[in-house]
């Protein structure tokens, strides 16, 4: 018995060591650094208490990024989950060419983000971009999509949805295939309509998957940075600056590592609260009893 426990711990050790080294230790380090000033050249860091956090309250770009991130999350999460579900239901039915369809839906996930963002950059290009060709053919005027504060964030949201929906579809598809066919046969025998079957049987059975996807979607919304760098660099006038992009800029463009650590802590707290909320409050409601 004791032997078993030792073996268990030993088996856990490699993963635990990696987790501590690359996740837990950096978190502790960030919290620690956030109370210190940024070392500059020969000036060592000094303890400054909550100064970094006070600076954050006055930092307009931080607040703007926070709001942008909120809108980004609200814009991407519900739509990409709904789309993923619709696509999964569609490609789960028996029909010709569904392998191709599944592959087509999944492709955006496989493509490298930087390349994709560059392609979308040309979609949005004024005058001869794909989107402009469409709108001018329909008789609308031209619009500078990524260059206006009013539309830039929406454009970035569309790319994120396109990228994410296919990824989430795979989880839904796997969950759908684990629903025993006897349930649908039984429902058919009882005379339930397809809509009723979907609403009362399929969706409740998919709830644990939905929770999992929701957690992932929230994390993705907060850690979005690559296509911002390629498409807008946070511009125009911070209209597309998201939290992680702001952290990156403060940390690696301004080299204000102390303040960047404080921003990172806030980011972590936001994520932790979101994840905790989802698990504690939703977990009870997702399992079908």
């Amino acid at each position: 018995m004791r032997n078993g426990a030792v073996t268990g711990w030993l088996l856990l050790l490699p993963a635990a060591a990696l987790l501590v080294l690359f996740t837990h230790w950096p978190i502790v380090g960030s919290v620690w650094d956030s109370f210190y000033s940024t070392p500059k050249g020969s000036r060592p860091p000094v303890f400054i208490g909550l100064d970094n956090y006070q600076a954050m309250v006055a930092d307009e770009v931080f607040w703007k990024s926070l709001w942008n991130n909120l809108w980004f999350a609200l814009g991407t999460i519900p739509v990409s989950i709904a789309l993923a579900l619709a696509m999964a239901l569609w490609v789960n039915s028996t029909m010709r060419g569904r392998t191709w369809l599944r592959m087509a839906f999944f492709t955006p996930t496989v493509l490298p983000m930087i390349a994709v963002a560059n392609i979308w950059l040309f979609f949005y290009t004024p005058q001869y971009g794909l989107l402009e060709k469409l709108t001018t053919a329909l008789g609308f005027g031209t619009h500078n999509w990524l260059g206006s504060e009013s539309t830039a964030l929406a454009c970035v949201i569309v790319v994120a949805i396109w990228k994410e929906a296919g990824f989430f579809m795979i989880f839904y598809l796997a969950a759908l295939q684990s629903i025993p066919p006897s349930l649908s046969e039984a429902a058919a025998l009882e005379g339930a309509s397809r809509g009723y079957y979907l609403r009362r049987i399929v969706l409740p059975l998919l709830m644990p998957t939905t929770l999992f996807i929701l957690v992932n979607a929230v994390i993705n919304a907060v850690r979005m940075v690559d296509h911002i760098i390629v498409m807008t660099k946070g511009g125009p006038n911070n209209a597309t600056s998201l939290l992680l992009f702001h952290v990156y800029q403060v940390g690696f463009s301004f080299w204000d590592t102390g303040y960047a650590a404080a921003l990172t802590v806030v980011l972590l707290v936001v994520l932790a609260v979101a994840a905790l909320g989802q698990f504690v409050f939703l977990d009870k409601k997702v399992h079908y009893q």
Partner: peptide, 13 residues
């Protein structure tokens, strides 16, 4: 063009 003009696509334009 009004608004912000992209550096990267300017040569292409």
């Amino acid at each position: 063009a009004p608004g912000v003009i992209e550096w990267g696509t300017t040569p292409k334009d």
